[in-house]
Design a protein around this nucleic acid. Structure first.
Lengths: 233, 233
DNA sequence: ATTACTAGCGTACGAGTAA
DNA sequence: TTTACTCGTACGCTAGTAA
């Protein structure tokens, strides 16, 4: 058997499970709220590895931007970053799905006028081919914009941990078109997708795409109230 | 530096994180309900390892009683065992605690007569020293027995994934005394512990221990309704 | 006491391949 | 096609130890 000198996938991070165990441990210790003092020996003991291995985990996590360490008189203080909490939340969400089933959420809002942007973006071939491939349809060239209140916005924050369907960004005609994530949705019973651009404008408006012209099919006009129902894919 | 020929902890299972990833993947694929057909190549691709490594994981999981494989014409069917689901549920519970805080549950039941067993067991020195050490008190020698309905029993099933305080079994006077798990509880506001023997009798009665004589302190008698509140330690 | 580097070696990886 | 074996290699472990 010939030896292959070129190591396959050199540098790929392994040990993902163990590093996750460290994050989980720190989260339970409250390191998401305030820095906690925990020696590398303690960390190692809790997850069943040596002080040296635990130290390497901490180093790696810090390097990956998941952990902030501050040394105070030889004693490290550990604090999880928002990125680490997002990772843990995604993990939580994954387990939740196993036992509680796919997450659903329902919200209401008022139909609002678009700025004509939707039509322009949705007509870009770079997007259209992705919609056809990944959503299974070419959307009607125009988004249904729905203005939502503070309560609905808070619910929508949960979407961050949902899977969703990725639409990748691309470049065309010398400019950049950003990526987005789509979530299967029903608006007053008619199906389509809620689409969230990566570069969100932080406005209190959500955009819906659908194979149909929702405005005419639903017979809704500006400021009419519609109900949006989302279920995890 | 001297090399130590005796390898430390030889044979200890590593890769716990990766095996958990396989269990999670299978659970999402529905392998808890019905066997799923999934090649080792598929499994490997999903968790980012080779077919060979994935196969080794499956073999190890089967060996540990977490997975049942049945070969049908070169195609393996994979099904998770209850032990695997319990493991995943414990994991879920751990994450849940991070984001939702300690679990609580509240239930009602009717005071029931004990059979005098409680007094006998609670007087055993083997138990008493453990109660004093791990609960912080020596319980009043007599349990408060509370009969509960089907709904409450279903809630109590969740206790399986709680941490609890372990009381170990032991042998004394030529007989065996079994272990138990205690959960901090309040009965009509008075604190104590709900205690669940490992060898449960599957009766619809839960037992409460407390430093005080709860019957007299609460002034309750047989068939009076009491409320039990549990919060995770 | 800490954190964290080095050395040595065992475990677990993936390639190749049998069945 | 599968599953699952052998085998060489190298990653990541722990011990020892510096700072």
């Amino acid at each position: 058997m010939t030896a292959h000198p070129a190591a396959p996938e050199l540098g790929r991070p392994r040990r993902r499970g163990e590093e996750l165990a460290v994050l989980k441990l720190l989260a339970h210790a409250g390191a998401d709220q305030t820095p906690v003092v925990l020696t590398s020996r303690d960390v190692g003991a809790r997850i069943g590895v040596s002080q040296q291995a635990a130290d390497r985990y901490l180093l790696a996590l810090e390097h990956r931007g998941l952990l902030v360490r501050s040394m105070a008189r030889r004693r490290q203080r550990l604090e999880l970053t928002p990125a680490a909490m997002a990772m843990l939340r995604a993990e939580y969400h994954g387990y939740r799905r196993i036992f509680e089933g796919p997450a659903r959420l329902s919200l209401s809002g008022q139909v609002a006028s678009g700025l004509g942007e939707g039509r322009y973006y949705l007509s870009q071939p770079g997007y259209v081919v992705q919609f056809a491939e990944r959503l299974g349809y070419a959307p009607f060239p125009g988004t249904l914009n729905v203005g939502v209140g503070a309560g609905a916005l808070r619910k929508l924050a949960l979407l961050a941990s949902w899977q969703g369907v990725r639409i990748d960004g691309f470049e065309a005609s010398g400019r950049t078109f950003g990526g987005a994530t789509c979530y299967p949705a029903r608006v007053n019973g008619r199906s389509g997708h809620l689409i969230r651009p990566d570069r969100t404008h932080h406005r209190d408006v959500v955009e819906i795409i659908s194979p149909e012209n929702l405005r005419t099919k639903l017979n809704v006009h500006d400021s009419d109230t519609v109900t949006i129902e989302l279920e995890e894919a």
